[in-house]
Nucleic acid binder design. Structure first.
Lengths: 247, 247
DNA sequence: AGGTCTTATTTGTCTATACATATTACACCG
DNA sequence: CGGTGTAATATGTATAGACAAATAAGACCT
């Protein structure tokens, strides 16, 4: 299955792309292992008969993508991969379900204004102070409960939310279109369904659920916190990695 | 808590950085919302009295980071965030546990050469053909079972693995140091512990577990597949996002 | 041997210019 | 009115040259 390393020099595209492909190829094939010192800008210049600026931009781009590290006076080196990192994409559930070609359904289960506390809300509240709206809703796929959404909204940051009734459009969908954010943290875990969750998701008590929690900030101000609870057998999260950065 | 938008123009660093900070600031503050057309290279040129090349590099860098989109003849626009994406970092478990300041323990439970099939292995095998090594091991934190690791290794891609007994060092740790990879896919899900898992993790049958599966390739050749099974209450995955790309 | 100074080398940043390419907007014509 | 061609414009890519900043390596002195 391994292709017999027939690469010599790429042929199509711009000079920049060709140079980048060549270098990436050598690194990814293992021909230039981690720690290897790649050619100086000067050498690339004569190899490809290009200006230094061009070589510089190529190497800088590779450095930006994390594939090489550059040190003045020393040269550019193939970087050692540090941790197993991947890009996680968490799409809007409506789009996600419709992408699968299934019927999407949405229902608002409960709405409370002004910091009503519900025992179960747990750590979602850590970063949010009143005034908040608390919502609980359900997303369906093909007629089956697909996710439970617990949502807290900071009304100071998102005053428009107060006038929205979220009976038709889910807070997730609404937020994507109305509120920009600058920082987010996700926490992914598993739990057993308690009686309430079991009832709302139509699963048995004790069934494993995948829980995705997210806190979102904008310039340091908390915007919203959300917890999605999925029946284990209906949902997987997928994350991909490629060193070049293009997922 | 919200800072009163005192930014006007950054002051330190290189011109490139200052321009970039200014623009990012305006976008992240919401002053330039998604869809907003930012100044043409030409305009930035006179605003900052710089060469077009400099403006171009700034805008190109912002485009590369996904914060803006550029269209010929039309201009550069603040990008609409598409999906909620985040950088997921999955460290080596040994490092992870020791980072928490807890005692790390490791035990090899089982080893089978040459594609021995175990019913339970399930979809891990999808991409791997023989010859393979199959391992099952346990990672402990502070004396408690912390993760179960099911590991498949492609001996064609990693012949050295045949001579390694993994009784002292875990395959994860060994692989990080010995095998480069170019592509990976993760799948994160939840499941209830069956009798086997419950016994090996010292949890009750039916307890929710967080399952992280990973397939790794190198230039298209499958290297290894692994499944980590964590007791739900001992492990969360954390993922962070900042639009600038610097986790 | 060990510490300090100097120098050469490499990358970092920027300017100024040139031509290529894609695409919008508009004028023109059937 | 609608389709077509054309020009204007903004970005894409590349060149050539300049100076700044960091630092590895060697020279020098103690």
């Amino acid at each position: 299955m391994t292709s017999p390393l027939k690469r010599r020099a790429s042929t199509g595209g711009t000079l920049h792309q060709r140079m980048r492909n060549d270098i990436e190829g050598r690194i990814l094939s293992g021909e230039w292992p981690p720690g290897y010192r790649l050619p100086f800008e000067h050498e690339l210049m004569s190899t490809y008969s290009c200006a230094r600026m061009t070589a510089n931009k190529v190497l800088s781009a590779l450095a930006a993508s994390g594939l090489v590290e550059r040190r003045r006076r020393a040269g550019s080196f193939v970087a050692r991969p540090k941790v197993h990192s991947a890009v996680l994409q968490i799409p809007d559930l409506k789009a996600e379900v419709e992408n699968r070609g299934e019927q999407y359904g949405y229902e608002l289960l409960e709405r409370q204004q002004r910091g009503a506390t519900r025992d179960d809300r747990g750590r979602l509240e850590v970063h949010l102070r009143e005034p908040i709206i608390a919502l609980r809703c359900r997303h369906d796929a093909a007629g089956q409960p697909f996710a439970l959404e617990d949502r807290l909204l900071n009304l100071n940051a998102v005053p428009d939310a107060a006038t929205q009734d979220f009976s038709q459009v889910s807070p997730s969908t609404w937020l994507v279109d109305h509120v920009p954010w600058t920082e987010a943290e996700h926490r992914i875990s598993a739990r057993n369904a308690d009686a309430t969750i079991a009832a709302e998701l139509s699963v048995e008590v004790g069934a494993a659920c995948l829980v995705i929690e997210r806190w979102t900030w904008r310039s340091g101000e908390p915007i919203t916190a959300v917890r999605f609870t999925h029946p284990a057998d209906l949902y997987d999260l997928v994350a991909r990695f490629t060193p070049s950065g293009q997922a």
